[in-house]
Simulated assay, not measured.
Amino acid sequence: MVIPALEESFEAAVRGVDEWTTYVAVAGGRIVGSTRGRPAGDGTVWDVGRVMVAPDLQGRGLGRHLLALVEDAAPDEVTSYELRTGALSVDNIRMYKKAGYRLQGPAPGPPGAVVMTKPRR
C-alpha cells in the first residue's frame, strides 16, 4: 500500500529543497537523518515533514533533535505544528507524543496516515 505521507518521488524531493526549510544530519560523510518544515494554510501552522533517521541510528535521540531543530525554524507567526505519520508507525507516534504532539485522527486522502498536532509554546 502506498501512503503518500510516507513516500515521495525523487522529483518531488528535489522540488522540496526549494519549498521547505530542510535540515540534514551527516556523520562520517553519510546522510543519517533529515527533516523539513514550511508554513501551511494561513501561515500560523508549521507543516513538519520527513523526519527520517537511518535505521541503525534510531533510538538514540537524533529524530527528536531533528524535530526540535525544525520546530525552532518556524517563523514567529506560527502558533502550532502539524505532521503526518503512518497510522501503524507505533515508534514514530510514541516519539511524537513524547515531543508534545497529539493524535488528531486520520489524514485526509488515502487511508494509512494520521495527523498529529502540537501547540507552539
Rank of each mutant, 00 (worst) to 15 (best):
D47I: 00
D47A: 02
D47P: 03
V48Q: 02
V48P: 03
G49D: 03
G49A: 11
R50I: 02
R50N: 04
M52Y: 14
V53L: 03
V53P: 10
V53I: 10
V53Q: 04
A54T: 09
A54W: 00
P55V: 13
D56Q: 06
D56K: 06
D56H: 11
L57P: 09
L57H: 06
Q58G: 11
Q58E: 10
Q58R: 14
Q58S: 12
G59T: 09
R60P: 10
R60H: 14
L62H: 08
L62Q: 06
L62N: 05
L62R: 05
G63P: 02
R64H: 12
R64I: 10
R64D: 13
H65C: 15
L66H: 01
L67M: 09
V70I: 06
V70N: 04
V70D: 00
E71H: 02
A74M: 03
P75K: 01
P75F: 00
E77I: 08
V78S: 03
T79I: 00
T79Y: 01
S80R: 14
S80I: 07
L83S: 05
L83Y: 03
R84Y: 11
R84I: 09
R84H: 14
T85H: 03
T85S: 05
T85P: 00
G86Q: 01
G86E: 04
G86Y: 00
G86V: 01
A87D: 15
L88I: 15
S89F: 06
V90T: 12
V90S: 12
D91N: 13
D91Q: 15
I93N: 07
I93F: 11
R94C: 08
M95S: 08
M95P: 06
M95D: 08
M95W: 06
M95R: 08
K97T: 15
K97L: 14
Y101N: 04
Y101S: 09
R102E: 13
R102T: 10
L103D: 11
L103F: 07
Q104V: 11
Q104W: 10
G105Y: 01
P106C: 08
P108M: 11
P108A: 15
P108Q: 13
G109Y: 03
P110R: 13
P111C: 06
P111I: 04
P111R: 09
P111D: 01
